[in-house]
Write a protein that binds this DNA or RNA. Structure first.
Lengths: 136, 136
DNA sequence: CTTTGAATATTAGCCGGCTAATGGTAGCTT
DNA sequence: AAGCTACCATTAGCCGGCTAATATTCAAAG
């Protein structure tokens, strides 16, 4: 059997390079690679609980907790008590956290071009549709 | 702009779940997730230097060094001096390291099925071709 | 009303990735 | 032969992922 012929291998292999690219563009706007996906969820819905954020980004609660620690330190988000449940906290974007979205959008466009650089438009569309089917 | 519509986003998203799956199947044969790709390279060419392994798996030399530390501890590989260059070391598979390949192949087949579960055969083929184009 | 169990956040500790910095060796230039 | 430079391994230290374990709080059941 050839591991290299499997989709599981190819997907993992592509992942390594893609992760490096994300890191590079995230750093260019002052974010770490793990922080961008949490921010994206907050830009969609502000004031979420940690547990809900974890579910949305498919990460474990401790991982999200650690990522939020960095975002809190760098003043991208703030933390507030959940009104009706003392166990939970709500995470809110700061003005800085709202603002950085524009910079990331610009960087993300470059990242997208670099990612799809070797593909035609129809191939890019196919890839997106296939990736969507993979994890739905 | 919608981040969710980009291939860069979808690829990263698929990555998270795929990494968890790899971890699960790697653990089932006594390996950690990062170790399997180093082992795959050694199964192709035994006795490589660390720097060459790093290049083949697209990881930094320190990362490979750390991964090899675990493989050495668990007796999957051994370390030997490079005959003509005192800077380098050669990494060799132990009998245990050779043997574990069969177990991983079995696990990998299951992983492949799980990964492609929601895709048709033609879709799976397309995905593999697109992933190959992405990082060549 | 008490107890039990589930849910939320958090801590500790591991592996996996990176960059930067160190030390030793090879090789080339002079 | 000496010295500069490039190369290889390794260490330190950071972030990002996980599981397991803890403390707190809520809710539900007795």
């Amino acid at each position: 059997m050839q591991f290299e012929d499997t989709a599981a291998y190819l997907l993992a292999k592509a992942t390594v390079l893609h992760k490096n690219a994300i890191q590079k563009y995230a750093n260019s706007v002052g974010l770490h690679s793990g922080q961008v996906f949490v921010m994206m969820e907050l830009w969609k819905v502000d004031g979420q609980r940690q547990i809900d954020l974890a579910a949305r980004v498919n990460l474990s609660p401790p991982t999200v907790n650690k990522i939020l620690g960095g975002l809190l330190e760098n003043d991208f988000v703030t933390c507030a008590r959940y009104e009706d449940d003392a166990r939970s906290t709500r995470i809110f974007l700061t003005p800085k956290g709202v603002q950085v979205r524009d910079a990331l959008e610009e960087a993300w466009i470059e990242l997208e071009e670099q990612t799809l650089g070797s593909l035609t438009d129809t191939e890019a569309l196919m890839l997106k549709q296939l990736l969507e089917k993979l994890f739905l």
